[in-house]
Amino acid sequence: MKYNLFLGGGGDIADSKDIDYEFFNCLKDGSQILYIPVAMDENVINYDSCADWFTKLLSSIENEKDIDFEMWREIDPVPQVDQYDAIYIGGGNTYYLRNILNETELSTQIVNYLHKGGIVYGGSAGAIIFGKSIGTVMEENDISSTDHSGYGLLGEWSVRCHYSDTSDDFFYELSSTLGPVIAIPETSGLAFNQNLMKVFGDPVYLYRNGIKEKITNEIKYE
């Protein structure tokens, strides 16, 4: 099955190895990835560290493909995403990420790219923006934004990462106000194509209508 949207739960390189492998495995030899780390607060993790982290991520993948990447920082000219074989959007502050992608119209480019079959990976904040609402991470709304809309590429579903099984009450409450919420642990990830979703790594959980549903394999999504 060919997937083109990959959502990582926000763990470190070892945690997300299953979904990462799936993403890199679907790239052809000689691929060029556009890496977007702008969700990260540069005062906390600078872009040198981001570039080197991505290098370490690529180094962790056991295959012989010749894969290159370019990193986009806010100070760089806005890239044309269809010149790349894949896009990788890193984690950080979801509201900040959504806003910068909207302001630069990269969001429109990325959504069109996906519709044309382009391959996109989003980790943590980079995953959450693809859901219906980013209000799943209201604690990151430092800028008091009243707009909580994500890109809505997963139908009615919204996304929250870094899930742990001690946070059930929180997720029930979230889903009662936002609609279905998919909870991805750090040790897991999801791959989507037009109407199927497959879990790579530990199970993920779907909270809807007051019910928690465990998902371990492939399902159709709304």
């Binding site: 600078n46 981001c50 290098t55 370019e70 920082r73 100070i75 760089d76």
Partner: peptide, 8 residues
């Protein structure tokens, strides 16, 4: 060597 500048 500052990795972030390789493409800048």
């Amino acid at each position: 060597l500052r990795s972030q500048f390789i493409d800048g």
